[in-house]
Design a binder for these strands. Structure first.
Lengths: 241, 241
DNA sequence: TAGATTGTTAATCGATTAACAATC
DNA sequence: TAGATTGTTAATCGATTAACAATC
């Protein structure tokens, strides 16, 4: 049965079975924790160790590591450093891809400041904006270029990732330019569902969808167990002055 | 069998069956689309209409609306305005809860600028930061207050939601203060898993986890179908000057 | 009436969890 | 050796999709 497994792993990447989305989102949590674990000098780790830290079922942890192609040894556990390394390899964090960020507003600026993205395979090489007041400036050390140049530069520099942080109304047009320029993946922060070709990797980071889930649960919790009413105040902001 | 359904709906909210997370995240998409649909003067809408727009199975749309307590009429469809309204009601967007945002860095500032949050049940009433250079200033019209005051004000103002946008190292301490102050929900943007009491609603917005999923898929896609190599350049930034 | 659409139940699919064998 | 842990298969659970009845 082992031989069957290795056949699976030798399959061409495009036919390899896709790893479940939940697994992909848990792997960075393991990675983060295991870096601490390694730092603490612990050379091996068990699924139970990881599960206890992250409040996850040990079997689930084991399955996730298996999906990432990482194996351990019965009775011993996993070699901490090998898991850290294996996760980085599996997630594609070893070779960094270049990205353009479009929309140097407040969300765009925030993302330009995330230094650790480079450790996760993402290097934002420049930002683009339409606003002449922003063009030519630098934000968190990254140049802000004229939106006009996006199409040409994306193609010439073989940029693979586009990050969209423009208002919803402009997002589709930006996506079209990025796709025409040859990007392979789009990370979309605009609250709109973009139309892109089938093969393109598209991730939506729609905060309103996240918020909806939070507010529904809060509303339900408040209905079950209401908050005591706050004392009446004339104006709330008065408190802050 | 209808009578059974209404019994279900009459159950106490804390015993009502939880609505699936994927459903909660799709409802805002329907809401957004149906506002346009209504704007266009279309008074009724079918699940097929919604499904075509959002590339979703019509049956799934119907189940989602059912979960939100919204019903239609065979052959006719759903009344557009009633669905818009029903989603808002179900998601708790009709009564707005007050929130404090902690950490007036770039991500915090970005969130303070999201005007539409108030239409989604979330009113950020103030921001908090430790940096004296920020305290007393306003960001996107919201006061930035001293972190010292967080505990007292959270309690006195009966704040229900805490938004955490501080660095990972400080996030747990902030969460503890918010919890002690009585918040019922935390929206956490720091890349760390917080420990909070069981009953507390906690949503993690961990961009590194999202990014991991994107980078893994990109790495896999590039392996299957590599990008042509970019022409060699001495320094990349030279292009921008 | 006929046909389109919702309402509702059943089947499928995928992820999680449980059980247990293999192994160091 | 015995016991802890991985490896692997089976069972469960939940969400999606399909089938079909109800209805306007």
């Amino acid at each position: 049965m082992y031989s069957d497994m290795s056949v699976t792993k030798q399959m061409a990447p495009d036919t390899a079975k896709a790893v479940p989305e939940p697994t992909l989102k848990r792997l960075p949590l393991y990675h983060r924790f295991l870096k601490e674990w390694r730092q603490a000098g612990k050379e091996s780790v068990s699924c139970t160790d990881i599960g206890e830290e992250l409040k996850l079922d040990p079997t689930q942890v084991r399955k996730d590591l298996e999906a990432a192609g990482i194996s351990g040894r019965p009775r011993i556990g996993y070699a901490t450093a090998a898991v850290v390394d294996g996760i980085e390899l599996f997630l594609g964090w070893k070779k960094v891809s270049e990205a353009f960020l479009v929309g140097a507003g407040s969300m765009g600026s925030a993302l330009l400041g995330y230094r650790k993205f480079e450790e996760c395979g993402l290097k934002i090489v420049a930002a683009f904006d339409r606003d002449p007041g922003k063009i030519g400036r630098k934000i968190h050390g990254k140049h802000v270029l004229a939106l006009d140049k996006l199409a040409d530069l994306t193609r010439r520099m073989h940029i693979l990732i586009g990050i969209i942080t423009v208002p919803a109304a402009e997002a589709q047009a930006v996506a079209d330019v990025l796709v025409a320029g040859g990007v392979r993946a789009i990370w979309n922060f605009a609250p709109i569902r973009l139309r892109v070709p089938e093969h393109l990797i598209l991730h939506n980071e729609d905060l309103y969808c996240s918020l909806a889930s939070l507010s529904q649960k809060l509303a339900q919790a408040l209905e079950a167990n209401p908050a005591e009413a706050a004392p009446v105040r004339k104006t709330r902001t008065a408190t802050f002055n």
